[in-house]
Design a protein around this nucleic acid. Structure first.
Lengths: 319, 319
DNA sequence: CAAAGGTTTGTTCGCGATAACATCGTGCCC
DNA sequence: GGGCACGATGTTATCGCGAACAAACCTTTG
């Protein structure tokens, strides 16, 4: 018991025994068994973080934000990846919950019935992140992707572009991309504009795909004067292709992506994009979890809607 | 006990009771407590994966390889990030080991004395990955970065370049980058060539840094005819800059990076690089863990040295 | 129909820690 | 010097499950 107290820094232990215990622990290479500790204390201090993908640049940045905040607490994030598949999300969630984490941060607002039931039944703080177009189970932090789509559409129309092509990923289950697209077309429709060509890809190097798709689309639909990409990577590919071709950007053709990835800063031109507030989302989500778990719970805003900001860069005319 | 048997699919249970149990579990939303299970059975089925960074594109790919293999087993990876800091590695390792994982996959061969002691004392399979220039604690999978550096140097010299500049990250603790550099300079030295200029960066967008640094270096040392970058991202930045400047590549200046990232496929020119076998490393490491944990342990090769292959691309003359 | 043997279900104990409470010492005060 | 308070240390029960063994229940067979 004294050893336990020393190693957890809890309760009074005299300095002499404390040092003796620490010395012995070191000599023996003793590593406490958190499994037993967690069982006995009913406290786990793990936060399950469930995201669709790691190979995306956007989620690692969210993780960074989460880490930054949790580092100052005793909480530790544990990451699970769903590959955008609801069944896998369900499985990962089940696995995670069976470790009885202290909280859950999960991407998106769309989950299977079973997943929602598990989250509700878990009796722990749940923060749904990235997206705010929907009703959260508990807390949420994100941006409105519908609004992001709408704002980009407005900016494009205001700049005078009228013949718009769209390129995105072939991901029916990426609800956020879908919502952006919906918001985008909604504003276009209100202004009597329709998307004139579209293309979707899956797999491969996004940059290379952006190139190819742009080439294909322009040869198919040479009248286009604007290309909207569902992410910056393919947008960057398109940009590089158009620059190669000596096309006037943003005069002849305008371009925009989404995400505000750091990569863009190194391109010959700055691609117009919209910041998805990834780091901030991670931080705020972690803060909500931490606040709800502190004793007594700190009051926090549990429905956080961040405002994505448009970056015009060099590929979208301004008026 | 019968419930336990049903939920773990272990032991004989009649179909009638099995269905009854499953129905009840579902109705109650019962999620078994793995903490208690792990404590009782002394089996955890977690594999600790300890890597320096997630924002790098190289480690996510290793993780993908690990995932691919572990998905077919009952093992589950748990990721810890060290930010290239030995103290943090030590801390993360300690935290991880206190959950008593079934195996450890850890990047690099260089660890603090304490970390090595913990790994040895843990009594579980340990696979050190990425690098093979050194002596592993237990198993290792990777490439020789020294050799990678040497081979690139040979290729560059063979192509006739003699005035070489180097750009890399300011990371004294990235041992693999260091070893590549050592191998590189070693071959140069043998051929009476020295690196004529060098620059290091930290933080920021690698692509943008590649641009800036290349510009600076060439204005400082205009006589250079080859630029060797410690990673593809800054190499790509340099490439884009030089193309902007209308410089003849690979005639006037040759370029090479390292890693073989997918990104490169979308660039206007293919940057010369060397594949680090990231996916393969992840897969092999996971296979070693899985094999050693199967009962009885499958025999596997525990010292796997993969051969990095050079890709000449369009930025390195061939002869 | 009893014994044997297999299948299914139940009991007990312990995993390694912590919570809660109990005990031991020491110093202080009246 | 006795009583008390408080800090330091020790005891016991418990967390939820699985291992190992025990018991109950079937089925088969001579």
């Amino acid at each position: 018991m004294t050893v336990s107290r020393v190693l957890r820094n809890r309760g009074d232990v005299s300095d002499t025994t404390r040092t003796k215990v620490l010395a012995a622990a070191k000599a023996l290479g003793y590593v406490p068994n958190k499994i037993a500790g967690a069982l006995a204390s009913n406290r786990v201090n793990l936060v399950a973080v469930i995201i669709p993908s790691l190979s995306n640049m956007v989620f690692p940045e969210v993780l960074t934000g989460i880490n930054q905040v949790l580092e100052d607490t005793e909480l530790q994030p544990v990451v699970g990846v769903t590959d955008y598949m609801p069944e896998k999300e369900e499985k990962v969630l089940y696995e995670m919950l069976s470790w009885r984490p202290s909280g859950v941060i999960i991407a998106g607002l769309e989950h299977s019935e079973a997943s929602r039931a598990m989250l509700k039944a878990a009796g722990i703080p749940v923060v749904e992140i990235m997206d705010t177009d929907g009703i959260p189970i508990d807390a949420m932090v994100g941006i409105s992707h519908r609004r992001a789509g709408r704002e980009m559409a407005s900016a494009i129309l205001k700049a005078g572009y009228r013949h718009i092509g769209f390129m995105g990923t072939k991901m029916p289950l990426d609800h956020r991309a879908r919502k952006r697209f919906e918001g985008f077309t909604e504003v276009l429709a209100k202004n009597g504009v329709e998307i004139e060509d579209r293309a979707f890809y899956s797999g491969g190097s996004a940059l290379a795909k952006g190139r190819e798709m742009t080439q294909d689309m322009l040869s198919r639909s040479p009248e286009l004067d604007f290309l909207y990409y569902s992410n910056d990577m393919i947008g960057a590919g398109g940009l590089l292709y158009l620059l190669d071709q000596g096309i006037d950007i943003p005069g002849q053709i305008g371009l925009a992506g989404f995400n505000g990835v750091e990569l863009l800063q190194g391109l010959p031109r700055q691609l117009a994009t919209m910041d998805a507030c990834r780091l901030e989302i991670g931080r705020r989500a972690a803060e909500i979890i931490a606040a709800q778990l502190s004793d007594p719970p700190d009051p926090v805003e549990t429905k956080v809607v961040l405002a994505p900001t448009i970056a015009y860069g060099d590929t979208l005319k301004r008026r």
